[in-house]
Amino acid sequence: MSKPSIEDTAGHVVHLLERLDAPASAPQSLLLPKHLGPRGRVIFAFVNVIVTIAAVFALYFLWRSEESPGWWFNLIFTVMIGGIPAVLWAILIGTGEEARFDHALQAKWDQSRHDAGAEWGRVLARDIRLTENGSVSSFDLTVTLDDGSTLRGRWRPEKATRVSLLQSQVPGVGAEVRVWRIVEAGVDPSNIPVVIQAADASVVARQP
């Protein structure tokens, strides 16, 4: 039998819990990262407009100046100055697309989570990304279920916090996980979110 292909992490989220206690139903929220609201996006766009206007004036005076060493000098600073507003607009557009995707994902989960069933599995592999100070910014878990299928999900912090996630808290290979997903016939699994619940590896399990 060929090894099941690993699905992309899009729509597959990892929830890090203290313990894998048996729940009565699937989680209500996907615990997706918080995004800029309409007011924040308007303020960000306003700042971008000001920066863009300032960059245009700076480039105008740069090319009109007679004290420039040459066109190569102007070209270098044109790229540098013009890149600032370009990056800011790219960030605004990118965050907007990510916010729309996450909102649509949560809406799909709200509609389908009551039909989700719990399955048990084990961590097959993990991929950890770190910040500059060594804390965990996000991590991916590849899990294999009892039926032999393989899924991959991603953990991202729900909101900015002073408490950082440590590498020792990330579930290791072989750790038990619980997966909530739709398994009914006729439902396209690629259009339905999947929640992978894993226990914090730094929490000592209670003795039965």
Score class of each variant (00 low, 15 high):
residue 89 W to Y: 14
residue 62 L to V: 10
residue 145 L to A: 00
residue 141 L to A: 05
residue 75 L to Q: 06
residue 74 N to L: 07
residue 151 L to E: 05
residue 158 E to Y: 00
residue 68 S to N: 15
residue 95 T to E: 09
residue 167 Q to M: 14
residue 74 N to C: 07
residue 155 W to G: 01
residue 147 D to L: 10
residue 130 L to V: 01
residue 88 L to Q: 04
residue 106 Q to D: 13
residue 68 S to L: 14
residue 149 S to H: 11
residue 164 S to W: 11
residue 172 G to M: 02
residue 134 G to Q: 04
residue 97 E to A: 15
residue 126 R to N: 11
residue 122 R to P: 01
residue 105 L to N: 01
residue 56 V to P: 00
residue 58 A to R: 03
residue 58 A to C: 07
residue 121 G to P: 02
residue 139 F to R: 00
residue 81 I to L: 11
residue 149 S to R: 13
residue 79 V to Y: 05
residue 145 L to Q: 03
residue 166 L to T: 15
residue 92 L to H: 12
residue 159 K to E: 14
residue 111 Q to V: 06
residue 76 I to R: 14
residue 97 E to F: 14
residue 86 A to Q: 01
residue 129 R to P: 00
residue 75 L to I: 11
residue 123 V to C: 02
residue 123 V to M: 13
residue 114 H to Q: 07
residue 76 I to F: 15
residue 132 E to Y: 06
residue 73 F to V: 09
residue 136 V to D: 01
residue 87 V to G: 08
residue 163 V to H: 11
residue 106 Q to E: 14
residue 88 L to Y: 13
residue 112 S to M: 14
residue 97 E to Y: 14
residue 65 S to R: 01
residue 114 H to F: 07
residue 79 V to W: 12
residue 112 S to G: 13
residue 170 V to W: 05
residue 69 P to L: 10
residue 165 L to K: 06
residue 137 S to K: 01
residue 86 A to C: 08
residue 69 P to K: 09
residue 127 D to W: 03
residue 162 R to A: 09
residue 157 P to H: 01
residue 125 A to D: 14
residue 74 N to Q: 15
residue 111 Q to M: 12
residue 101 F to V: 13
residue 132 E to W: 07
residue 95 T to R: 10
residue 102 D to H: 11
residue 108 K to P: 00
residue 166 L to M: 14
residue 90 A to S: 11
residue 109 W to M: 01
residue 147 D to C: 12
residue 56 V to T: 04
residue 83 G to A: 04
residue 55 A to Y: 06
residue 151 L to W: 06
residue 118 A to W: 11
residue 127 D to K: 06
residue 134 G to F: 03
residue 80 M to E: 06
residue 161 T to K: 05
residue 115 D to I: 09
residue 130 L to T: 05
residue 80 M to S: 09
residue 110 D to V: 02
residue 94 G to C: 04
residue 64 R to P: 01
residue 55 A to N: 07
residue 98 E to H: 11
residue 87 V to F: 08
residue 69 P to T: 03
residue 150 T to M: 04
residue 79 V to T: 04
residue 70 G to N: 02
residue 67 E to A: 12
residue 101 F to E: 13
residue 145 L to C: 00
residue 156 R to T: 15
residue 134 G to V: 07
residue 65 S to N: 09
residue 104 A to C: 02
residue 122 R to M: 02
residue 130 L to D: 01
residue 136 V to P: 03
residue 170 V to H: 03
residue 143 V to E: 00
residue 110 D to K: 05
residue 99 A to Y: 04
residue 141 L to C: 09
residue 132 E to S: 14
residue 97 E to W: 12
residue 71 W to A: 10
residue 56 V to K: 02
residue 94 G to F: 03
residue 162 R to C: 12
residue 154 R to A: 10
residue 90 A to C: 08
residue 101 F to G: 08
residue 162 R to M: 13
residue 75 L to E: 08
residue 90 A to N: 14
residue 169 Q to Y: 03
residue 62 L to Q: 13
residue 83 G to N: 10
residue 73 F to W: 07
residue 157 P to S: 10
residue 158 E to P: 00
residue 105 L to R: 08
residue 159 K to P: 14
residue 173 V to C: 05
residue 78 T to S: 15
residue 85 P to Y: 01
residue 71 W to E: 13
residue 135 S to Q: 01
residue 132 E to M: 08
residue 89 W to A: 12
residue 132 E to V: 04
residue 150 T to R: 12
residue 122 R to V: 10
